[in-house]
């Protein structure tokens, strides 16, 4: 159960008030009639699925009914920021790497075998990509 700061209500609300609406910052091609089938197919069907920092659109459906964006770590489930529609994220996969290197601690997880470092070390280091 996430605890989500609604950037419009300006307070934290329980996850059950929200609906996730998939990847954020998708752009509908401006001129669909002159878009190739491939480009239109990409817009319709292809989505990012990163391990680490991800930008998602959510809607505060039982609340202010506003859509907004969340920057979330898909490994730790930590919500790094929420921001209004039309704004850009201040934290991205690149900046998150910096955060980690500077020693900001977050819960790490997602591995079946916790504590078993050697064989998963290489994978773990890719976390932010």
């Amino acid at each position: 159960m996430f605890y989500i700061h609604c950037p419009y209500c300006q307070e934290y609300r329980e996850e059950e008030e929200f609906h996730p609406r998939g990847e954020a910052h998708l752009m509908r091609p401006k001129d669909p009639d002159n878009t190739t089938d491939e480009e239109w197919g990409d817009y319709l069907f292809f989505r990012k699925n990163p391990r680490g920092v991800h930008h998602e659109m959510w809607v505060h459906s039982v609340g202010c009914r506003k859509f907004f964006n969340i920057t979330r770590n898909t490994v730790t489930y930590e919500i790094l920021e929420t921001y209004r529609m039309g704004e850009q994220p201040s934290i991205t996969a690149e900046t998150e790497k910096v955060r980690k290197e500077q020693g900001v601690q977050t819960a790490d997880g997602g591995w079946q075998t916790i504590g078993a470092q050697p064989e998963s070390k290489a994978l773990n280091e890719e976390t932010s990509s």
């Binding site: 819960a107 790490d108 997880g109 997602g110 916790i114």
Partner: peptide, 8 residues
Amino acid sequence: SHTGTRPQ
């Protein structure tokens, strides 16, 4: 551990 963190 429920949170996904690893015991040390």
